[in-house]
Design a protein around this nucleic acid. Sequence first.
DNA 1: CAGTGGTCTAGACCACATG
DNA 2: ATGTGGTCTAGACCACTGG
Lengths: 261, 261
Amino acid sequence: MARTRIADEDSNYEELVALARKAYLDKSEHPIWQQIYDRLAAACRERALVPGSRLPGEYRLAEIFGVNRITMRNALGRLQEEGLLQARKGAGIFVRAPAQRYVIKDNMRFSMSLDASGTVTTRTVSLHRRKASAWAREAYGLAAGAETVELHRVRLLDGNPIYYAVKEFSLTIFPRLEADYAEHGSVTRVYRDHGVTSFRRAETRVSGGFADAVQSERLTLTPMTPVILVDSHNTDEDGRTIELNRGCWPLTSVELVFSTP
Amino acid sequence: MARTRIADEDSNYEELVALARKAYLDKSEHPIWQQIYDRLAAACRERALVPGSRLPGEYRLAEIFGVNRITMRNALGRLQEEGLLQARKGAGIFVRAPAQRYVIKDNMRFSMSLDASGTVTTRTVSLHRRKASAWAREAYGLAAGAETVELHRVRLLDGNPIYYAVKEFSLTIFPRLEADYAEHGSVTRVYRDHGVTSFRRAETRVSGGFADAVQSERLTLTPMTPVILVDSHNTDEDGRTIELNRGCWPLTSVELVFSTP
DNA sequence: CAGTGGTCTAGACCACATG
DNA sequence: ATGTGGTCTAGACCACTGG
């Protein structure tokens, strides 16, 4: 593994030197940092820089591109905002997968379905009890001290995280949730095992914000990166709320489609 | 007018001095720029800094807060990203209205309705013909050289721009659009005058991006600020597409709600 | 411990908007 | 003509990550 990483870094190095070779345009019209940004952004999107691999350090990069470290940082900062790179203090700068734009159809009847060209997998981060949130208390009609179950999951496209969601369930509705989910790893399976055969997306709220520490870690983004937030809840056929969900996407990685049936 | 602006700037100055008076916390835990950012963000949200007014220059601000100009710029940069401030080269730094989060309900039957605590007004930026876009050619079934009409509008809350939209119409469907809209300033009126009495939102696509030059100017944002983009189209009762719309919101200013009837 | 990214300072030149 | 924000350089110290 370390073997391939080194190979990746080496191939990155050559690619970067090639990118830096071209002369800069007149800097009064196009700032140097923007030209560097453009070249790196293009390289990321073309996968000329290997997703998951590490870049040389900032001093080295500045040297390669023939600019001051601060100028280099300016370019790197924008690339992080767009989710093309992720810098980790003490560790280095890593190439993220370029943001393919996902198309998510929310048909208001079932859960979101996802159109993607790659392979989508799900990783369960944690499943644990907590004191019910205010949202949950209201939606499920719980008393102040009640417990709920929180499920944290990350969706990955070809191994790259693109969606982080936190779900909160009522133990009154799904008493065997923990064992059930642990065994099958599926929420719809939990539904079925508790007699819920039909459900629908009752409401979806979309807003924007900036990734907090947890969200940025899960999505391998630099903290404070802009994200799209999705709050939603599902109801069963009787109109009872059975699931609360709060999801988070890198800003440019998703396109949510709402259409009439 | 210049009178009140000066008064605003003076009151800003005193507020800023007050904000800078408090000692900074240990900077190894909380970076100085972040502490300055926090204080200014809070002041903007409380409207302690007057929306629309100008701040002192960066050198002066740095002096007030007792830091280097670059450190000050770091804080100011984040505030611009969040749409709390707007810097204009050569002109100064201006206070934007704090981003109240709007709740927009899209019920899939009529056009979006907007819940806001203030007064919403609409400003028409331009109405002109253009060569049909690819999107319009496909949606309206137009030939390659066909003309369409483009309408640019800005929505304001209490005078502050929060939404910028570009609509593209077919002249085949609305031949008298230009005169009609010029006279009444209403799209639904244009619909009615052309015999369209019932219509619905057929599809809404939500995504994220970064404001281009035009969008940032219309929304009084600093260029490259993150925004939420909304593409949608309306159809008449026969299912024929009659309107294409591309809208743009400052990232944290809107919450789009999609719910089942 | 060495190397990394994060922060901060100091000083300089430029293009632009405004009066 | 002046002052503005935008850019760039040079050098420094820190906290963190990793081997």
